[in-house]
Design a protein around this nucleic acid. Structure first.
Lengths: 125, 125
DNA sequence: GCAAATCTACTACGCATGTAGTATGTAGGA
DNA sequence: TCCTACATACTACATGCGTAGTAGATTTGC
């Protein structure tokens, strides 16, 4: 089953679940940054929508509150986001890297670290 | 002036302009892949919206048709997309790279190529 | 046991996006 | 010149997202 598209704010909420583990609406809402913290019912609505999309599920009930947990893993969603972006770029990962480098976001040290990591992995397999 | 958000389909249209240079609505519409080619007026509407967003401008008029051209460069928009994605990842470019590596999209050779490129650049500056 | 707090479930609404129709204007060939 | 083909400008509408309010159920503290 192809996972439905996850919006930016939905992604923020999922991050909370990955961070906190199974949580109630209240817990997630309070874990959001104070500066931009939507109303309780706003968070509730988004959580319901994530449930409909199959990204969250109701785990149990504590008191009168439902406890939700993430169905998708952080890694899976991250991959999906990157794959989508890559698709827009005609599937060229090197051009993504070039941009990262050009904006100074990726340093030589970062690249060397990844390279070490990757060559270690290749030797193993 | 902060450039407004560009949607997926808007991005597809911009790609046509980067490819074709200044073009009419008709030319852009016909350059879209046959499988998923929206109606002429659909493309027209989206082009008007891109104009409102400042991503396109009317260059001149040929016959009774307006010729539009891209204001933003492909590179600028690509950077913006990557920056946005990065923001979602907590600004960590290495995790983006890790995912590219994990999905097999980025090879050791790719990384070495970028590394060479970057170290050359660093020596120069 | 009752009132206050809290939660759920539902509804609403404005803006963005993708889609396209319609009325009107213009250009160019017979 | 007048008809036809094409373009413009405007309007419309469904869906998704971000936002939140309200009515009614449930819990809990006293």
């Amino acid at each position: 089953m192809r996972v439905k598209r996850i919006s930016r704010f939905e992604f923020q909420l999922l991050e909370r679940f990955w961070e906190l583990g199974p949580s109630s609406v209240r817990e997630v809402q309070e874990a959001l940054p104070e500066e931009h913290r939507p109303a309780y019912t706003t968070v509730q609505t988004m959580i319901y929508r994530l449930e409909e999309k199959g990204a969250l599920r109701r785990l149990k009930k504590i008191g009168n509150a439902h406890i939700f947990e993430a169905v998708l893993t952080r890694t899976a969603v991250h991959k999906r986001l990157i794959t989508d972006l890559l698709e827009m770029f005609g599937g060229s990962p090197t051009s993504v890297m070039s941009h990262l480098v050009e904006t100074g976001k990726l340093t030589l040290a970062d690249i060397r670290a990844i390279e070490r990591d990757l060559s270690r992995r290749e030797r193993k397999s």
